[in-house]
Design a protein around this nucleic acid. Structure first.
Lengths: 253, 253
DNA sequence: CTACTATTTAAACGAACGTTTGAACGATTT
DNA sequence: AAATCGTTCAAACGTTCGTTTAAATAGTAG
């Protein structure tokens, strides 16, 4: 028992510490020695348990994202079952997608705001192995929610919905990252920046709640904003068949 | 002539290359040797001309941001002069703030989409020297626009405007970063990812235009969304009559 | 030409990086 | 008791990092 428990402890202690340090310093700026010394394990433990530093980062995310995206799919399944074939209200779709994530920020067992901040900061990392990993983790859930939004907003062109899903993800990602210049300029008026205080878990729960309360109306307002009137219509984006082809491609999968 | 031109060439060649490589790989993952070899200058040239790697990154941004934020202030001054004391329309404020930036993406002389992508990816960097630098560069322009928005939306609590400015900045930052999982999942449906193709400058102009056309309505819709009804009223946002102002909020422009 | 300043150059600095190694450890099984 | 397995450990691997140095190379002015 002690043997297996010790293994679990080492693995999870590394994951917890890595999650926090990757959030605080970023992936590249966080050394293996910093992680292992903070986790009080041997330097070789990471390579033994995870294989490499890259694999460690992926495992840090897999631990949270597999649960998150499964929960998102479950929530969407539930909504669609209740709707019995009818299109869903956009607000319910956004609540299922963004609310599920934001609620993780209130639960330290699910990573809390530490994970949310890490996610927001890592989503814009240009490293290819990270992008490839995220693409795989998000493929199904993005496709499902895109379809749901298209059904919910039948009068909005599919390409426009993709753009707005893009913008909504950005507003959320940036907000949870918590590195905003506004926060720095205004002295953390919105909420505490990523700190290392001991009472951070308590404040984080309040912050996560407030963030969700403010963000959801904003996202819904943006999603349902009037469609843009396109100035000079680009030649490859008029009502020509190429756009329809792209849309069908997005519909597939 | 050759002498001064050579100096200018070295400095600017380093800045141009650094801008592109920092965008492509991120700050930490871009080594001095990668920069100097790509710029065809000696390894010591960066430390000679800029002092350090950190100072180089700051100079890469200062070159663009000083122009951008000065232009933003000039645009706001112009709007306020025209209004002659009356509150500005939110759409004009957003156009001045975000439109000025997005138009840089169409002009390669101002950095083009390369700089926009770099900016979007760096705004979520946790390194303190970056955050401090951005705070200084943005302090004045953020304060001015915040005041303008507060005057434009007198019925909206100031804290709520700060939140939404925060969200708008996030949607834009993430969109220009161009590392979105949606793009990866859907095969770059929205726009080309950060590539290194030779014809990137032409496509980038189209991309910047489209991005602006789609983003501005989204931001405006989010800014003017109905105020949230707060679940359990936080202590610093209680007893406010703002929940009754949902309709006015949506009506304002 | 000479003296001076600015820039470029090759070479090296010490430090830190991610990873690997082979022995040692501890508990379970044979 | 001996063997086996999963895990931990100290130590070292070779590489790369940002930075520094001092000599060499212009270009300008006296």
């Amino acid at each position: 028992m002690n043997e297996q428990k010790a293994n679990q402890d080492t693995r999870e202690r590394i994951l917890d510490v890595a999650e926090r340090l990757f959030m605080k310093h970023g992936y590249e700026a966080t050394s293996m020695r910093l992680i292992t010394s903070a986790a009080e394990v041997n330097l070789a433990a990471v390579n033994y348990h995870f294989g490499s530093k890259e694999a460690l980062l992926c495992e840090v995310f897999r631990r949270r994202l597999s649960w998150l995206n499964a929960e998102r799919l479950r929530a969407l399944d539930l909504l669609e079952a209740e709707a019995a074939g009818a299109p869903l209200k956009p607000s319910l779709i956004l609540e299922a997608f963004f609310g599920t994530l934001l609620r993780m920020g209130e639960d330290p067992d699910l990573g809390g705001m530490t994970f949310l901040r890490l996610l927001g900061r890592t989503l814009t990392e240009p490293a290819e192995f990270i992008r490839t990993f995220f693409a795989g983790e998000y493929a199904e859930v993005i496709e499902r929610y895109k379809q749901a939004l298209c059904r919910a907003l039948p009068d909005v062109p599919r390409a426009e919905i993709v753009w707005r899903l893009h913008f909504m993800l950005g507003a959320m990602s940036y907000a949870i990252a918590g590195t905003d210049v506004i926060q720095v300029v205004t002295g953390c008026e919105v909420g505490d920046l990523a700190g290392e205080g001991d009472s951070a878990t308590v404040d984080d729960r309040v912050l996560a709640r407030r963030l969700a309360e403010r963000l959801m109306p904003f996202l819904l307002g943006g999603l349902r904003a009037p469609l843009p009137h396109l100035g000079e219509v680009p030649r490859d984006f008029a009502e020509n068949p190429t756009t329809a082809r792209k849309d069908e491609m997005a519909l597939a999968t």
